[in-house]
C-alpha cells in the first residue's frame, strides 16, 4: 500500500508546489513504513506522538501524503483510547497526536472532506482551556 500511497501523493500533494526536500521525502517514507501493517505497535504510536510535539504536520509545517495515510491508519485505533491515554498521565498522554489527527480530518489543506460521522470525535476543550 505504501507504493500506491507514494504514487497518489504526486497528484494530491504536487512536489513542485510544496517543495519537498530529500529529507522530507525520507521522513514520509519512514512514517509510511513505521505505521504500515505489521509494524504499527504501541511503541510506534508513542514515537509519532513525540515526533508531533513541536510540529503541525508530520513534516513540520508542510502537509504531505504521510499525514493522510497515517491518519487513516491511526484513526480507528485512537477511537479505543481512554481519556488517560488521550491526554492524561505524567507526560500528557497522546495529546500531540490527538491535536494532529483533528487537524488532518478538518483541514482544507489536507482536503479529506469527511462526513462528521466518519471523523474521530475530539473535544478540543478536553484539556487546556483557561483563556478568558
Amino acid at each position: 500500500t505504501n507504493t500506491i500511497a507514494t504514487h497518489l501523493s504526486s497528484t494530491v500533494f504536487p512536489a513542485d508546489k510544496h517543495g519537498y526536500t530529500p529529507l522530507d521525502i525520507a521522513q514520509i517514507d519512514q512514517w509510511l513504513s513505521l505505521t504500515g501493517p505489521g509494524s504499527l505497535t504501541d511503541g510506534v504510536v508513542d514515537q509519532l506522538n513525540l515526533h508531533l510535539k513541536d510540529k503541525t504536520s508530520i513534516l513540520g509545517t508542510k502537509p504531505s501524503i504521510a499525514d493522510v495515510v497515517c491518519y487513516a491508519r491511526l484513526k480507528d485505533l485512537a477511537k479505543g483510547w481512554s481519556a488517560e491515554q488521550r491526554v492524561g498521565g505524567a507526560n500528557g498522554g497522546r495529546r500531540y497526536l490527538l491535536r494532529w489527527l483533528d487537524w488532518v480530518q478538518n483541514s482544507p489543506i489536507i482536503g479529506l472532506k469527511l462526513e462528521e460521522g466518519e471523523k474521530l470525535v475530539v473535544d478540543v476543550d478536553e484539556v487546556g482551556t483557561v483563556v478568558r
Binding site: 503541525t56 491535536r99 483541514s107 478540543v124 487546556g128 482551556t129 483557561v130 478568558r132
Partner: peptide, 17 residues
C-alpha cells in the same frame, strides 16, 4: 500561558486554518 493552553488540542487559534 493562556494561549499555550488554548493551543493544546488546537492547531490554530480559531478553526482549522
Amino acid at each position: 500561558e493562556e494561549l499555550d493552553a488554548h493551543l493544546t488540542l488546537r492547531t490554530f487559534i480559531v478553526g482549522y486554518t
